[in-house]
Amino acid sequence: MADVAAAWRPYRAVLASRVRSQASYRGGFVLDLASSLLVGLVELAEVWVLYRAISDPGGIGGLDLAAAVLVFGLADLSFSIADMLVGHVDTLPRYLRSGTLDVFYLRPQPLLAQLVTSEISVRRITRIAVGAVALGIGLVINDIAWTPLHVLFLALVVLTSTATFAGVFVAAAGVQFFLVDASEMTNAIVYGGRYAASQPASVWSKPLVALFGFAVPIAFTAYLPTVALLGLRGSAWLPGWVGWLAPLAAVWTWAVALLAWRTGIRHYQGGGG
């Protein structure tokens, strides 16, 4: 136990310094907090506007507004936590272009661990709050037949969905070693994935099911667990019971992420400095 605490001490020191540095520009920090709160609220408002405009109580893709709020809450909470913890790995292209990545090679720690632990984006905390509140509302307004299994499943899903999104960030970073200037290409997966996560996957066209249902298992982060929790039917390609397998998506994502990262590292030739 003491060993674990000792092992984490450097990370705690780094994080504490990052938090202090972000909070020291008070105006900018408050502004960042306010803007990520506003972004979260506007995105929730979009869900509300769309579902409100439909009078059919059946909702869209088998989800009514209450279920959609639950999906949004799960998706946004887990994405935002992942974004806070590892989202900064998307600054990798900047290190690659300026050649400063080589500095990390001088330190006796794995490159990925250093990048992940080099920063924590505290400003995401308001976005996490929006996700958590939406999730809370979603759990209250939906009719869920709670059993201990449901509670355990929900807790596990928040963890594994966060891990899935974290894996997506890392996989995207691995690909950056090849793309460098086309970082928007991976944004299609990362931020497209965030957007996709808050949608009912039952409405997706076939290419989307292939992309966000299986290759990058975004459907497993929020939509399918919600379908499982509410006991809904799901769709032909992603039936309701698949939702219970949601945690496995994190394992698959991390296998791909670590492979992408390793390939990227092997490809990297150094900044020439």
């Binding site: 928007e184 931020y191 949608q199 009912p200 997706w204 066209s205």
Partner: peptide, 17 residues
């Protein structure tokens, strides 16, 4: 090119929902 890929992905998602 990166922007095009991102726009196309969002286009597919928007069109579906």
């Amino acid at each position: 090119l990166g922007g095009l890929v991102a726009n196309a992905t969002f286009g597919l998602l928007k069109a579906s929902i």
